[in-house]
């Protein structure tokens, strides 16, 4: 659309530079401050790894780290199994029924996080289920499943439908045909879905906030609580590590798909 003349090119360069500055300045400042020897937020007094050392000696943070990883791993495994089986099942259904079920997956994706969080909290409280790690895991599974579903579905559509039929005709048991024929064909989709689910789980704050309690905080909860007590450089170190982790996960996902296709 844009003609490639010199004015347009220079305006574009300036515009993009300013935009990148706006998007990345806060993150880069935070990363820089996590290595700053002083507690000050504007003075650089030298490089240090003290905040990272402190971070790994803080039992509260280590506990939260364990909770976060535990929740993400369990939620990813369960949601990957349920989501993959769901995709396979829906693929074999008539279009009308499958559409209804697929639309259910859009529900958690379009409902505002705060409403999802509050609704789950109400259900748990009504059923007298104490909020904790497992209530959080159940919620995470629910919002992870759609990501798995939407990663696996396209792979199933690309698959040759005759392969499964051929396996059955040749006397293969349906369950065996599932893991001998279908699963190998859709493995890339399953893996992408699992990675996405894991990223979403690590990343979540709002839904976890409403479905867990201070007894079992995850990392987001610790960060949120600490903002009320004033900013601590250890939190910058923690944020930097979380950012780096998400970045690595996304590079992995991006290698498998294109981010903007999600």
């Amino acid at each position: 659309m844009v003609r490639n003349n010199r004015t347009v090119r220079s305006v574009r360069a300036v515009w993009m530079t300013l935009l990148m500055l706006f998007l990345y300045a806060p993150i880069l400042v935070m990363i820089a401050l996590s290595f700053n020897a002083s507690v000050s937020r504007s003075q650089w007094t030298g490089f240090t790894l003290d905040w990272y050392v402190k971070l790994f000696h803080d039992p509260a943070i280590l506990g939260a780290l364990r909770t976060t990883i535990e929740v993400a791993v369990i939620a990813t495994v369960i949601s990957t199994v349920i989501g993959t089986l769901g995709a396979i099942g829906m693929h074999a259904m008539n279009a009308g029924m499958a559409n209804v079920l697929i639309n259910v997956s859009y529900l958690p994706m379009t409902t505002p996080d705060i409403v999802t969080g509050v609704s789950l909290m109400l259900m748990y409280l009504f059923c007298h289920v104490p909020l904790g790690k497992w209530t959080m895991i159940m919620a995470h599974i629910a919002f992870d499943i759609p990501y798995v579903l939407f990663s696996v579905m396209p792979k199933l559509k690309q698959m040759n439908p005759n392969l499964y039929e051929a396996a059955l005709d040749l006397g293969c048991h349906p369950v065996k045909a599932l893991y001998k024929v279908i699963i190998p064909e859709i493995t890339p989709g399953i893996f992408t879905g699992a990675l996405l689910a894991f990223t979403m789980s690590l990343d979540d704050f709002v839904i976890s906030y409403f479905t867990s309690s201070d007894m079992y905080p995850n990392l987001s909860r610790i960060v949120y609580a600490s903002t009320k007590l004033g900013v601590k450089p250890t939190m910058y170190a923690l944020s930097t590590l979380m950012f780096a982790t998400i970045l690595i996960l996304l590079i992995l996902v991006n290698k498998r798909t294109k981010l903007e296709n999600l």
Binding site: V81, I82, G83, L85, G86, I88, G89, M90, H91, A92, M93, M97, L101, V104, S105, L107, P108, T111, T116, L120, M138, A139, I141, A142, I145, L149, P174, L178
Partner: peptide
């Protein structure tokens, strides 16, 4: 094969 979607349907019903 469509029965494989049962856990999915139940989970989404119960938690969404």
């Amino acid at each position: 094969r469509s029965w494989y979607a049962t856990p999915y349907a139940l989970w989404m019903l119960l938690f969404a």
